[in-house]
Design a protein around this nucleic acid. Structure first.
Length: 476
RNA sequence: UCCUUCUUAGCUCAGCUGGUUAGAGCACAUGACUGUUAAUCAUGGGGUCCUUGGUUCAAGCCCAAGAGAGGGAGCCA
């Protein structure tokens, strides 16, 4: 029986078997306490055995980290700290864990250390809580789209187009890396490769997503995404999961409404379904903040912060308005921005942070960016200067969503592809959606791990995915 | 990739101006005590001071190169 179920139903007097991993063992003269966790909930169950019930040989094997099955009767706890406990009848040890060598001790470990033992860190309270929250968020995402008439479209992981220019790509090849077949000019002959052309791991499912939306009207993708950028930050991974809805007949305004409604739904789902885990993570954060200066401590607790986002409207403003606010800010006038502010620049982290964390103090949707700093497929505004782009910025995370209304005019799109140097014959199929039955449509990409970061209150993206892939790191 | 900080026991860290046998807390082992909650108390074992090279009578400490990690920036989700 799973601990979650035991604690929920709590049928006193029932005989049950609990299978899980030992967190701590405390030995008294008359009685032994064993705390077990099976990952089904943040809470442990305490097993109590009077001396003699467990033979000494077995008891020696029950150490922190070992895996056991304990059968006994569920009784009301005689001690404080838990309502029920398990009165032990028998103990079976599945697997031992040498206490001299087992790296997880019943004490606080640094997140850096736990990253080095990613194979064992799911056994800690912090990481099991994160993984349960991560699961709930993934489930909520599928549920939201399903309940709102979207179809889950599986876009390819291996792609033959490098059209989007969303970053460096990982090559997929079965050619001999030492002696690849060559063309006459010495370049690698990819016609000999598995797919007969150069292929890479996807950096985005968007282009294929648009093809789906132009048939099924409302689709979303949710899959792994790969970027070979040499990014070493707390918010980038080489392999991450991205959600990309794409909707026919949606204009920028509809797209913003979807982004706001969707993110609020997902956060709210976590609040109602992962409350105990969030309370644990909130307390973890509070402990951490005790060591910080008062100015650096957050005004809201984790759960308050999540409720605040769910209960308040996001601020919506154009890029041009944002630039005005930045130009009028005290910080700019005092020359405290490291990077200059003027219309046409790509906003730097410090600018986004100022807007979201100092000026508005809530999620912000920025729209209508200059076309020169945005992707080729975004729909141009009438002024010819800006495009119908939107970025959703979250406090502490920065850009969590990037999206736009797509250019649906064949000629304009073709011209932009030429301007940015994309060959027509590599994305002819994408252009054809504008040739045959084109329609206005919009979509966005949400970085799943960034959402998990926000909801769990963690600060490093490597701690919200089970096995992070980053430059120079693909262990486990 | 750039800037910056760090690397000493299983973990978290201290280590003075370069000086003789490198410390603490936790963990672990043993014992005592106890319906305990990361139990408590006592005792004990435990070290490639990241690696290589250099300076020096003498290097954990100074210098150089390399490796790894953290934070910030860029790229973005």
């Amino acid at each position: 029986m799973q601990i979650k179920e035991i604690l929920q139903t709590a049928e006193i007097g029932k005989e049950i078997t609990v299978k899980g991993w030992v967190r701590t063992k405390r030995v008294s003269s008359n009685v032994v306490f064993i705390n077990i966790n099976d990952g089904s909930v943040i809470h442990n169950i305490q097993a109590v055995a009077e001396t003699g019930i467990i033979d000494e040989e077995t008891l020696k094997l029950v150490t922190t980290g070992s895996c056991v099955a304990i059968t006994g009767t569920l009784i009301e706890s005689q001690g404080q700290g838990q309502k029920v406990e398990l009165q032990v009848k028998s103990v079976f040890v599945y697997g031992t864990a040498d206490p001299e060598k087992y790296p997880l001790q019943p004490k606080k470990h640094s997140l850096e250390f736990l990253r080095e033992i990613a194979h064992l860190r799911p056994r800690t309270n912090t990481f099991s809580a994160i993984l349960r929250v991560r699961h709930s968020l993934a489930f909520a995402i599928n549920k939201y789209f399903n309940d709102n008439g979207f179809f889950y479209l599986h876009t390819p992981i291996i792609t033959g187009s490098d059209a989007e220019g969303a970053g460096e790509m990982f090559r997929v090849s079965t050619l001999d890396p030492i002696k690849p077949p060559l063309n006459e000019d010495g370049s690698v002959n990819y016609k000999e490769d598995f797919f007969g052309k150069e292929t890479n791991l996807t950096v985005s499912g968007q282009l294929e997503g648009e093809l789906g939306a132009m048939a099924l009207s409302k689709i979303y993708t949710f899959g792994p995404t790969f970027r070979a950028e040499n990014s070493n930050t707390t918010r980038h991974l080489a392999e991450f999961w991205m959600i990309e809805p794409e909707v026919a007949f949606f204009e920028l305004e509809d797209n913003m409404n979807l982004a706001e409604d969707f993110t609020k739904y997902v956060i709210n789902y976590a609040l109602t379904n992962c409350y105990d885990d969030l309370v644990f993570l909130e307390n973890r954060l509070k402990e951490e903040e005790k060591n910080k200066k008062k100015e650096e401590q957050s005004e809201l607790s984790l759960i308050e912060k999540l409720r605040f986002v769910v209960d308040n409207d996001y601020v919506r403003l154009t890029y041009t308005e944002a630039i005005k606010i930045l130009l009028n800010s005290k910080r700019h006038k005092e020359g405290k921005f490291q990077y200059p502010v003027e219309w046409g620049i790509d906003l730097q982290s410090e600018h986004e942070r100022y807007l979201v964390e100092k000026h508005f103090k809530k999620p912000v949707i920025l729209t209508n960016y200059p076309k020169d700093i945005k992707a080729f497929y975004m729909k141009q505004d009438e002024d010819g200067k800006t495009v119908r782009a939107m970025d959703v910025l979250f406090p502490g995370i920065g850009e969590i969503i990037g999206g736009s209304q797509r250019e649906d005019d064949y000629e304009k799109l073709l011209q932009r592809t030429k301007e940015v140097g994309i060959h027509e014959d590599t994305i002819w199929w994408y252009l054809e959606t504008r040739k045959y039955g084109s329609a206005p449509h919009s979509g966005f990409g949400l970085g799943f791990e960034r959402m998990v970061l926000f909801v769990t209150g963690m600060t490093n993206i490597r701690d919200v995915i089970p096995f992070p892939r980053t430059p120079k790191s693909a262990e486990f």
